[in-house]
């Protein structure tokens, strides 16, 4: 087993397929919990706290929805990042954009800008610089036209945001097979994200998605647009579901 030291760790590269080393001389955005070890003089601050001192951080991290889940690592040292033993991949953007599942984004250089994607649970990175994303198994790159299971979708680059496709034959077969009851627990095959145009789609093996804390905040925020009557209907539905799950 090779033993690494502060001086021998790579500047910006994988230590092994599941761990990435970033030599800091300045700052990096890091998802909370992605850090496993560090050498040197490194400070970790909440993005909000950091941005109150350094205004540029707020401009780079323009997603109030995700800001609570991120910190800024600042100082001089070497930081090691990893996520659940998943593969960690680095992506270099040059005046480009890539949209990635928010829970799989581990860190990015402050030269990049983060924005929320229109697709819930995803964020878009814009500009020039390096970012790190984890995947369950190595990333699979495919080209449109392609239809992807939403759970297996890791991200996409250059192509337009996907449309939702419903499989007509699946719906018919389900009806014929009197599976309406089972339809509630959707298996995923009847609904896919449809990618068209030129670009690249990134896939991983489907997984139980890690709880995305931002999703609750997003839904809560959107619920504000409901009329009082609609809010009542939603509230009753959620209460009924909570009761059902308790049983």
């Amino acid at each position: 087993m090779k033993t690494w030291s502060a001086s021998s760790l790579p500047d910006v590269d994988n230590v092994n397929p599941y761990c990435y080393s970033v030599r800091l001389a300045g700052s990096w955005f890091v998802q909370k919990g992605a850090m496993i070890a560090y050498y040197g003089d490194v400070r970790f601050d909440a993005v909000t706290a950091f941005a109150s001192r350094q205004a540029w951080a707020a401009a780079s991290f323009s997603s109030p929805l995700y800001v609570q889940d991120w910190v800024v690592a600042e100082g001089n040292g070497v930081v090691l990042l990893a996520d659940r033993g998943f593969d960690v991949n680095s992506f270099d953007l040059a005046e480009g954009n890539l949209t990635v599942r928010a829970t799989n984004l581990l860190g990015f250089a402050p030269t990049l800008e983060l924005k929320q994607s229109i697709v819930p649970g995803f964020v878009t990175l814009l500009g020039t610089g390096t970012f790190l994303a984890s995947s369950n198994g190595p990333v699979i790159f495919v080209e449109p036209p392609f239809r992807a299971d939403p759970e297996a979708l890791l991200g996409w680059a250059d192509c337009p945001s996907p449309a939702v496709h419903h499989d007509a034959q699946w719906m018919m077969a389900s009806l014929r097979g009197a599976l309406q009851g089972a339809f509630g627990r959707a298996s995923g095959e009847e609904r896919q994200y449809d990618f068209t145009g030129a670009g690249t789609v990134l896939l991983q093996s489907s997984e139980v998605q890690r709880e995305d804390p931002a999703l609750l905040r997003l839904v809560t925020e959107q619920a504000l647009q409901l009329t009082p009557q609609q809010s009542g209907v939603l509230g009753a539905e959620l209460a009924a579901r909570a009761r059902q799950q308790q049983v």
């Binding site: 033993t3 092994n16 761990c19 070890a37």
Partner: peptide, 14 residues
């Protein structure tokens, strides 16, 4: 991953 600790070179770990 094996990480070396040396005098003057402390390591911080999660």
């Amino acid at each position: 991953i094996a990480l070396e600790v040396a005098p003057g070179q402390p390591l911080v770990v999660d």
